[in-house]
Structure formats: structure tokens, C-alpha cells
């Protein structure tokens, strides 16, 4: 499974694919930032169309292995995350560094392009927005959850 609601340990992810043959390991780790579009981010929530997201992640991992002679591990968080927590991690191991760097960059770009995951940001000023890379400012105002703003 590539989606998880548990904290992601990027180091152990890389350890799963490093072997005697695969000497070059590259990891990309995306952490929750404390700012977006000039606003101070307090926390965020990732939601997903889980079955499609799992399928898309599996395809990306498989395609990376077809394009380059590499082993790939990919994890993406769902649920509520605080600033600094790991949102996404990609680990790629190749015999040499070139294919590991190239494949790692490709995998994270494809995740952003293809995987149905959405991000709801809670700001320090009490507002909430859906992150939308196609919108001016990169976000669209959201409604508060039905239970009202949480502390």
C-alpha cells in the first residue's frame, strides 16, 4: 500500500530497497511547510480517492522500473498532518547515481500529476482553503467542517 495514515519513516523506506547491487540510493522527502501563498499554515489534511490513488501509485512505481533499472518505494500520507511532518517520500535505488536521481525526480513529478489526492490547509488566521494549483494564489476558500473550527 502506498497511502498511509501513519507517520512515514523515509530512512527505513530507503533501507527496504538498498541491496548489495543497488549502490546508489536517492530519497525525496516532502514535509509540511509552515507557509503557502504568503499565509501561515497551522496544519493540513490530505484526502484521497483511495482505490484510484493506490492504482496510480502502483503504476508510477512500475513504470519507473521499466524506464530505469531501479527499485522504487513510494508512500503518501493521508489524514491530518502538522507542520514538519512527512507528507510524501520517494526512495529510489539504482546501481549508479544517474538513474536513481532521474527516476526519483520523475516519480515525485508523476505523483503530483496523476494521483488523486487533495490538500485542505488550515491557516493561523483561522481560515481554511483547498490547495488548487490551477487557481490564482494556489488555493480556493473552503468551508469549515460541519463540527466547526477545531482548536
Amino acid at each position: 500500500m502506498h497511502l498511509t495514515d501513519q507517520p512515514i519513516d523515509a530512512a527505513s523506506l530507503a533501507g527496504r530497497i538498498q541491496t548489495a547491487r543497488r549502490g546508489g540510493v536517492v530519497t525525496f522527502v516532502g514535509h509540511v511547510r509552515d507557509h503557502h501563498g504568503g499565509r501561515a499554515v497551522q496544519r493540513l489534511e490530505y484526502s484521497a480517492y483511495a482505490p484510484m490513488a493506490e492504482t496510480a501509485c502502483a503504476e508510477i512505481v512500475r513504470e519507473a522500473g521499466e524506464r530505469w533499472p531501479v527499485s522504487v518505494e513510494l508512500r503518501h500520507r493521508t489524514g491530518e498532518l502538522g507542520v514538519g511532518e512527512v507528507a510524501v517520500a520517494v526512495a529510489v535505488a539504482g546501481d549508479h547515481r544517474e538513474e536513481a536521481f532521474e527516476a526519483c525526480r520523475w516519480v515525485i513529478d508523476e505523483v503530483k500529476r496523476r494521483v488523486p489526492i487533495w490538500k485542505r490547509e488550515y491557516y493561523e488566521d483561522g481560515t481554511v482553503a483547498w490547495v488548487d494549483p490551477t487557481a490564482p494564489g494556489g488555493a480556493v476558500p473552503a468551508q469549515y467542517p460541519a463540527e466547526g473550527p477545531r482548536a
Partner: peptide
Amino acid sequence: VALLPPLAGG
């Protein structure tokens, strides 16, 4: 059928 807002993963 799923209606998918602009993706924001990663």
C-alpha cells in the same frame, strides 16, 4: 464516475 478537483498531492 468520480469528479476530481485539481490534484494537490505531493
